[in-house]
């Protein structure tokens, strides 16, 4: 049975005259890997901020993990995880301190944190680095750790904002293995990326152009619809028509 964990209906955000996100409508199912693509300035970040309970929509409706984006933003925050390349872990805290800090914020009990930390470090082969400052870790390890920390409290949904920028091709694939494993456990993955091969790893992909969702389907169907060999071609066809560009 499909079970929607994100439902979005005509969600809109205006900044003055500027319509950053323009009546977007979609649903994301439990355990789905949902790719949220768009050119710089298409309105992805604004949409994502509304879904994370960080920005009040101008109109439309949406629920995330069953909670309303207008009235239950605190509930939403408790039930999601978030990771971006720009902001994730505290560089001046150790690996264990970062885990304890985030788990604490999400209200996990100390014994549970302790037990799960040991498991996680073991799984990531980071046990020898437990007391190492995060800034001393290689980028690839940091990103894998950041993702694991973002889902440490077993959220229903995790939002990943360009999580894999700049890492080597092997680490990038190890990272995607972690994503797949989380999805198998029933965690819904909402991910943005500029790597078009990663769009292929998603169950479904939406492509935003100038604030609207121009296309939403499986990668396979999108390629069929746009008569394209790769997702890169699909993206170029759609985003070439974009009028605006911004970060």
């Amino acid at each position: 049975m499909k079970e929607a964990v994100i439902t979005v209906n005509k969600l809109t955000k205006k900044f003055g005259d500027f319509i950053a996100t323009n009546e977007v409508t979609f649903e994301v199912d439990k355990g789905e890997i949902f790719g949220f693509l768009g050119a710089n300035g298409a309105g992805k970040t604004t949409a994502m901020r509304m879904l994370c309970g960080l920005s009040m929509p101008s109109s439309g409706s949406a629920t995330v993990a069953g909670f309303d984006v207008y009235k239950q933003t605190e509930k939403i925050k408790q039930n999601i995880g978030y990771m971006s390349q720009k902001f994730s872990l505290y560089e001046d805290l150790t690996v264990t301190e970062n885990i304890r800090f985030y788990a604490g914020i999400y209200g996990m009990a100390r014994p549970a944190i302790k037990e799960k930390t040991a498991q996680l470090l073991n799984q990531l082969n980071l046990t020898p680095e437990a007391n190492t400052l995060v800034k001393a870790l290689p980028l690839g390890w940091k990103q894998k750790l950041a993702f694991s920390v973002a889902i440490f409290h077993e959220p229903k949904i995790v939002f990943l904002d360009e999580p894999t920028g700049g890492v080597d091709p092997i680490t990038r694939r190890e990272f995607w293995n972690l994503i797949y494993q989380a999805a198998e456990r029933g965690i819904t993955i909402f991910v943005t990326t500029h790597y078009m091969d990663e769009a292929e790893y998603c169950n479904r992909v939406s492509i935003m152009v100038d604030g609207k969702i121009e296309a939403l389907d499986t990668p396979r169907n999108l390629k069929k619809t746009y008569n394209a060999k790769s997702m890169d071609e699909v993206f170029l066809q759609l985003a070439r028509g974009a009028k605006r560009s911004d970060d």
């Binding site: 050119a39 710089n40 360009e162 920028g165 993206f235 170029l236 985003a239 560009s245």
Partner: peptide, 10 residues
């Protein structure tokens, strides 16, 4: 081109 979308990269 780091962090730049596919169209601008092209």
């Amino acid at each position: 081109t780091t962090g730049v979308d596919a169209v601008s990269r092209k």
